[in-house]
């Protein structure tokens, strides 16, 4: 075999696992889902192709209201995670000294390895009617009767922010880490106030990290299932819950696939818009972190 043949063979052998993975587990399943979504059940074992499932979705306000609600709450969660997480990331990357920085970063990562389920469980124990906060407040005498802090939208949003926070902080820390301190000093020396330096120097520099964090957080939130259900209860009307209901409870796979397709299209659209507005690319942001 010549050198070129070996090169080709290597390329082929290395490409095969990649191609099998992407083709069999990503591309074909999504085609299958699209096929199901376009298939309309007109009788037992009788199907017709068309956009009937989508029409049905559009005709039923509960469906698209839930999708819009999920989308807008996910955007809110993303914004809150950025606002809460940015100062923390900045502190870790720029203000803390070397030792504490490592320790704080590790502290941030530890909850990452604890399942969503356990974290949501912890919130339940704290917030429910018989939970820690309610009974502590009673013990202090601030309230007379137990309060139920679960099953409302505020709790769901806080729980989601908590769940996805780390995926915001990690990319932010890694971009801010690469920033030269002299850039900030130069900004101050030129007479900029703290706010100007933040707006004109730090944020533009951190943009890839911000966008990457926002994309991951938004996708995770919109696709999350556990936190809205456990903290919001049965009536939290989260879109993934409707997908589960159609697929598993009602066994209506056509409608479930349609919902899945819509969720994917909707979240991709939001991410695409975000990338366009911030003039970033997927490869330049998510791939880097």
């Amino acid at each position: 075999m010549s050198q070129r043949d070996i090169k080709r063979l290597t390329l082929f052998l290395l490409f095969a696992p990649f191609a099998l993975w992407i083709l069999l587990l990503i591309v074909l399943p999504h085609i299958g889902m699209g096929y199901l979504a376009l298939r309309e059940k007109i009788g037992p074992r009788q199907y017709e192709f068309g956009f009937g499932n989508f029409v049905e979705f559009a005709m039923e306000p509960i469906y698209w209201n839930t999708l819009l609600r999920t989308g807008s709450m996910s955007l809110l969660v993303t914004a809150l995670a950025l606002i809460v997480g940015f100062p923390i990331a900045y502190y870790i990357a720029k203000i803390a000294n070397y030792r504490t920085r490592g320790a704080m970063f590790l502290l941030c990562l530890i909850p990452l390895w604890v399942s969503d389920l356990i974290r949501a469980f912890g919130w339940i124990l704290l917030l429910r009617e018989t939970g820690v906060i309610s009974s502590s407040l009673q013990a202090i005498g601030l309230i007379d009767a137990p309060v139920e802090l679960l099953y409302n939208d505020v709790t769901v949003v806080i729980g989601l922010v908590y769940t996805v926070m780390l995926f915001m902080i990690v990319p932010l820390v890694s971009t801010l880490d690469g920033m030269d301190n002299s850039m900030i000093e130069a900004g101050y020396n030129l007479g900029g106030s703290g706010l100007t330096v933040l707006r004109r120097i730090i944020i533009p520099y951190a943009m890839p990290g911000i966008v990457s964090g926002c994309i991951i957080v938004f996708m995770l939130t919109a696709g999350s299932y556990l936190t809205p259900i456990l903290l919001g209860g049965k009536n939290s009307s989260w879109f993934t819950e409707m997908i589960y209901e159609q697929f598993i409870t009602r066994y209506n796979w056509e409608a479930g696939a349609t919902f899945g397709f819509l969720l994917l299209a909707f979240t991709s659209l939001v991410v695409w818009l975000g990338l366009k507005l911030s003039r970033q690319t997927l490869a330049g942001t998510v791939a880097r972190s």
Partner: peptide, 25 residues
Amino acid sequence: YIVMIVPLVIPGVILGISILAMASQ
């Protein structure tokens, strides 16, 4: 390379139902 990153940004629920749908079909 971008194709390789895509699975990470697809919601997990979608991955689940799409693979279930394809395997069952």
